[in-house]
Design a protein around this nucleic acid. Structure first.
Length: 423
RNA sequence: GGAGGAAUGGCAGAGUGGUCGAAUGCGGCAGUCUUGAAAACUGUUGAGGGUCACACCUCCGGGGGUUCGAAUCCCUCUUCCUCCGCCA
């Protein structure tokens, strides 16, 4: 969430910036400022009451010690009124704080200057494109047909044991996916990201920390018995490793990578565009996460973009990079680049990575801070990106590398697969 | 799952009702000494709220209670340790 201090100092700028999200934030912002004032006034009253009460208690202690029980008892009577007051005040304070929190949770991150205005994905700005779109032979198939033809993925079997959106990968299909995971992890660790294996279930506090809660509760599978959530992305457990931490400046940069399955309910999204691997309830992803000094975070974002580019060059997949417009930008992000691979067989772009800088928005919720050169605590910046999401990369490879004689495996993956062609 | 024990500052570890935000040691930082370093010595060193700055308030695993007053007593939850059971 936004920092209350920033809202106090830069109210108009914030409202202005949020118009890019097509949001009139002035009622929210004004509400926040009113509540903030109310909260502080209540806090001051409570503090004064407690100070008075603390003082009396000390006196009572001294009086008892010096044997003046009579006088002590007189003072005791005075404290009961203060006690009543402080009880009422602390309830008011708790209410004001909670209301304030609720409002703050409703304000999305302020978009970076580079974020283009716009209302939907139509308005995203293409900033880069690279790679040759292959010309496929007559009769080229979409990946779900290829998966069936070569017995790589069984969607029906997944329906049988779980439901739609939970595919079963088989034989060379499973092996290719595993090869991609290993390859991505190797690329990431070579680039300085430390590999982590993290839990696939997280608690409520973690959900709040990275911003999945309370806004996107319906997107996560909730294990109510234990009040745990299946992770929608490794971003959640990995970023939460730093919850409640105060780093030293010398700790930067922090770079992590993790492979995890991801679980998303994706309620209500059905249709032609979600066929095959295009949208799943469970999928694999290799994530990169960085925690950075505020002055270095955009440099870091650019570095992550370059890194993902390198992977796609390695795989020789045609791709483009979009700068998300205000209307398409995630709630917690300040600036996001989406990577899309062109699928020739489907004749459409498939999103395979999303790289974002959250600035202090998550750090504020996480209480992730560092000591600056003056010894003062400041919020760090958090970033993350997919490197990469598996299903659509798999789809892109199957579709773009198909030949009448089978599917060729990209050169960099051959050592990981142990075969050169699927036929 | 059963029985017992524990949770205090970056770490270790005192503190069982008032003078405790908290001894002491280690670590960190600054200084003295030194050509430099080490050692030694001196000082300093938790977080949040609040204030122009002070004052002041809150926090001793989380929540609740007793009391004029709680790190200290009671209840509850969580986590960790030991023993037993089960088990990949």
């Amino acid at each position: 969430m936004l920092q209350i201090q920033t809202i106090r100092d830069k109210k108009e700028e914030i409202i202005q910036a949020l118009t890019k999200r097509n949001l009139d934030a002035s009622p929210l912002v004004n509400g926040v400022l009113d509540l903030d004032e109310k909260r502080r006034a209540t806090q001051t009253q409570l503090d004064n009451t407690l100070a008075e009460s603390n003082k009396l208690s000390k006196e009572i202690g001294h009086l008892y010690k010096s044997g003046k029980a009579q006088e002590a008892n007189e003072l005791k009577a005075k404290t009961s009124a203060l006690k009543e007051d402080s009880k009422v005040l602390s309830e008011q304070l708790a209410n004001a704080t909670e209301e304030l929190q609720t409002l703050l949770y409703q304000i999305p991150n302020t978009p970076h200057d580079l974020v283009p205005a716009g209302s939907s994905e139509e308005d995203n700005e293409e900033v880069f494109q690279e790679g040759t779109i292959p010309v496929l032979a007559e009769g080229a198939l979409p990946h779900w047909e290829l998966a069936k033809k070569y017995d790589l993925i069984d969607f029906e079997l997944g329906v049988k044991i779980t439901g739609a959106g939970f595919p079963v990968y088989k034989g060379k299909g499973a092996r290719l996916q595993r090869a991609l995971i290993s390859y991505f992890l190797d690329k990431n660790t070579d680039a300085g990201y430390t590999e982590m294996q993290v839990p696939h279930l997280v608690n409520e506090a973690s959900g709040y920390g990275t911003g999945q809660l309370p806004d996107k509760e319906g997107q996560m599978y909730h294990v109510t018995e234990d009040n745990l959530y299946l992770i929608p992305t490794a971003e959640v457990p990995v970023t939460n490793l730093f919850r409640d931490e105060i780093l030293a400046e010398s700790d930067f940069p922090k770079r992590y990578t993790a492979y995890t399955p991801c679980f998303r309910r994706e309620a209500g999204s059905y249709g032609a565009h979600v066929r095959g691997l295009n949208r799943l309830h469970q999928f694999d992803k290799v994530e990169i996460v960085r925690v950075e000094h505020p002055s270095k975070s955009y440099e870091a974002l650019d570095g992550m973009v370059e890194h993902v580019k390198n992977i796609l060059r390695d795989l020789q997949l045609p791709y483009r990079i979009l700068r998300l417009c205000g209307g398409d930008l995630g709630f917690t992000s300040a600036l996001t680049y989406d990577f899309e691979v062109f699928s020739t067989a489907q004749d459409r772009w498939l999103e395979i990575s999303s790289v974002s800088n959250f600035e202090t928005y998550q750090a504020n919720r996480l209480k992730l801070r560092f000591k600056d050169e003056n010894g003062k605590s400041q919020f760090a910046h958090t970033l993350n990106g997919s490197a990469l999401a598996l299903p659509r990369v798999l789809a892109g490879i199957l579709e773009n590398y198909q030949t009448p004689d089978g599917i060729k495996i990209p050169d960099v993956l051959v050592p990981y697969c142990g075969f050169e062609v699927i036929d």
